[in-house]
Amino acid sequence: MEKRVVFRNPVLPYLLLAPQLIVTLVFFIWPAFQALKQSVLLEDPFGLRSRFVWLENFEYLFANAQYLDSLSITAVFSVSVAALALSVALYLAVQADRVVKAAAVYKTLLIWPYAVAPAVAGILWLLMFNPTLGILAYALRSLGYDWNHQVNGDQAMVLVVVAAAWKQISYNFLFFLAGMQAIPRSLIEAAAIDGAGPARRFWTIVFPLLTPTTFFLLVINIVYAFFDTFGIIHAVTQGGPAGATNILVYKVFNDGFIGLDLGGSAAQSVILMAIVIGLTVIQFRFIERKVHY
């Protein structure tokens, strides 16, 4: 049965919607239009004059090797972050689901990282992996592995992926745990009686029933890796060394606010928007079909 609220006053529903609409307009729609507008303009660094240049900003970007690099770096980065954050969270949730004693303590501790600001999380990992001071860098070196993310691009990438994933694990963990606890115990018991061992039960019963959760988290994690990891990159590597961790969202900031190329930066934002919209559509269109709701 559908529930409908009938408003006698024709203005009231719009008034109730207004705060949400205003926030969306001011902070999302308006900046998006500004970016669209800016992306076809060429502006001098002092903001005194601007010139309409058609799609020159975009043409420049796609001919630019650095930008194309940044695209593939972002792909590697976001896929790694999502994969790492999802798999570790799922593993932890499976373990937490089994804990009987002090389960609340365990869960609370696992949720804490989410409360840490991205920049702080970045600094934390930076300190631990600092080539000269870091305890983990020291441990690695004593194992015979030379860690220096300040010169080694791959190591820098690993570091930002780990830091970014670490922050997202808590969030994923919460959803996985809730999803798992929503699966009736009797299903697992029935599978046990049917002869399935713990691993088999997980992959044939629990995991398929978690697909809606996993799907939702995949979208959230990709978007997170695309946008919300700015703070971590900024604190840990500033996109370096030699652009090895220069993901799109960081490059937007770097080119626009450091390089003062406002038009180019806006063009990048527009492309970034298009990518995320595209990814989300693809995810909903194609992956959702394989999901059991």
Binding site: S186, A190, A191, I193
Partner: peptide, 16 residues
């Protein structure tokens, strides 16, 4: 349970 050679019907059926 798997080794006991029994089958069980649950109150909520527990169908997959």
């Amino acid at each position: 349970p798997a080794e006991r050679d029994i089958a069980m019907v649950f109150q909520n059926y527990a169908l997959y």
